[in-house]
Simulated assay, not measured.
Amino acid sequence: MSTTSTRPPVLRIVDLSARIGAQQVVESVTLEVPASGVTALLGRNGAGKTSTIKAVLGLIERSGVVELDGERIDTLPTHKIVQRGVGYVPEDREVFASLTVEENLRLAERDAKPRRDLVGDLFPDIIARSQQAAGTLSGGQQQMVALARALLNENRLLLVDEPTKGLSPKLVEEVTDALERASQVVPILLVEQNLAVARRLAKDAVVMADGHVVHVGDAGALLDDEQRVVGLLGVGTASPDSTSHSASHSASHPTSDSTPDREVTT
């Protein structure tokens, strides 16, 4: 994978396979996440992106090697992986709706000195609503709470799944800004259907199809190649200066009969 970092990868996955019940959802996935910046995990719906993240966390049955900073974590239960410094922002946010914003944040605190200043700087609107029940927030505000919970602790890696899904253009911009700033302090593996957001944030890209990795490389080079994007994702690229609109309605509207490029590039 192309990266300017000379440090070893923060996350290394080798021959990862996973299943949900009897269904194989990830098969022989190998990838690395550099120790800085954003790595975009792209693919059509059903490609195995979310399942890969859940497999890394041990949320679904898995086999293969998963290393965090050179240390194997694939034998550990989920709570031990989180304690090792892996933050998770799930696709459906999973805030505690009946609890206040402050209570949601306090429950997420793992470190003796949580990074309250960083969270307050990134999400002033959320802090201003600290006594409001999280379930009464807008979808975008709940996404901010989910991101804030992950950033409270000194994590070594963030796994962020579809953070802009279903948000208004204004909130997409705000979430993207927050992720861009967060990536300056912690590396991020980002599942994102909005290609304009991926273009703005990511240095590296991994593309999945049918549970396999089919492309690895520089994110900008991939997203600037209209033909490759159409072949791999079934959508057109978005303009580089727009993070508020997805490319050709984004990859959340896949062209199911397009054949993905099965050649993995390095």
Rank of each mutant, 00 (worst) to 15 (best):
M1N: 09
T6R: 10
V10T: 07
I13N: 10
S17T: 15
R19F: 13
Q24N: 15
V26A: 10
L31C: 12
V38H: 05
L59E: 09
G70L: 10
D74V: 00
T75H: 14
P77S: 11
T78N: 05
V82F: 01
V86K: 08
Y88A: 00
S98C: 13
T100W: 03
A108I: 05
R110H: 01
D111E: 00
R116A: 06
D117V: 08
F123R: 05
A128M: 12
R129T: 09
G140P: 11
Q142I: 08
Q142G: 01
A146Q: 09
A148R: 06
R149I: 00
E154L: 06
L157F: 02
K165I: 01
G166N: 05
K170G: 07
L179M: 06
E180W: 03
Q184W: 01
V186F: 01
E192R: 05
L195Q: 04
A196C: 02
V197E: 04
D204N: 09
V207Y: 00
V207G: 00
V213C: 11
G217P: 09
D224S: 13
D225N: 15
V230F: 07
L232A: 01
S239Q: 08
P240I: 03
H249S: 10
S250W: 15
A251Y: 07
R262N: 10
V264K: 06
V264D: 00
T266M: 10
